[in-house]
Amino acid sequence: MSGVLVILEDRGGRISRLSWEAAAAARILGAQRGVTAAVVGAQTEALAAEACGQGFARVVRVEHALLAPYTADGFALALEQLIRAESPDYVVFPHSYQVRDYAPALACRFGQVLISDVVAIGEGPVFTRQLMQGRFNASYRHTASGPCFVSVQAGAFRAEPADLPAAAPESFAPALDAAQIRTRPGEPFRSSAQTVDLAAAQRIVSIGRGIREAANIPLVEELARALDAELAASRPICDSGWLPIERQVGSSGHTVSPRLYVAVGISGAIQHLVGMKGSQCIVAINKDPDAPIFEVADYGIAGDLFEVVPALIAAVKAGKA
């Protein structure tokens, strides 16, 4: 074959969202030749079923008992065999933690280099990826013969769910031997959920003196729950004992870098900023349009939190329903 192979990833029994984004990228590369999707694991029936009907030319079930749980050795071996058999022009991956773990080694077996974390694909094809932590874009080209390995960044390509007639999945049984798998993975676990771990939180809703009194905290707490976020605060809130010191963000509290940080009624003093500047996306709600917090925010709402927060809770809940 020559064409595009996309590797879809299992996330809790379903295909991950990022995989669909990788599939969208694969379609750009394989507009003419069609895209083959592969699902990998010990039990791939359900995954394959999910993939069928999404407009892939073919869906391949790479199945072997030794492919669960995930190991870099197992995946690299299995996919090496698949790629040798299929000899695609492009192999596209979601840039997930799992892919980071095995895809560079897999590419290496073909004398290739993974073009990782791609954010755009242009004519040529030219692959764009970010340098210097997003400060620059760089364009890359595959200059050798043989399969070109590409992984795509989360959020860079828009997954378009399709509902097309299902093609029957094919099976591919790699030859694996237990002795080839050198690592022994354990069960996934979460770090003790009891203690607040702001540093590891993905989303944080943080309150400041704008909340005025302790009795108003439940309002923002509800927003945090709706957004599945941890509650945090500026120092005056913790000083007053309204929230425990473990929830303080800033120079004398925690340094956090969640994907989403919502600052509610926080002015943005430097000691607070240094604790949350690394957040990926910052939202500020403050009634003072000149509050310094807006300088660092990605999105700002200049308004009274007692009006904005209830509206936001309602909107989030409406979105979920």
């Binding site: 400060r135 620059f136 080209r141 999105y299 709402i301 009006e307 209830p310 509206a311």
Partner: peptide
Amino acid sequence: VVRMERIALPTKQKSTQMLDGSP
């Protein structure tokens, strides 16, 4: 086997978007 051809500034720089209107 892969070559970096050009580097450039991203087109969109980070700036604050204020969202107006009623709450």
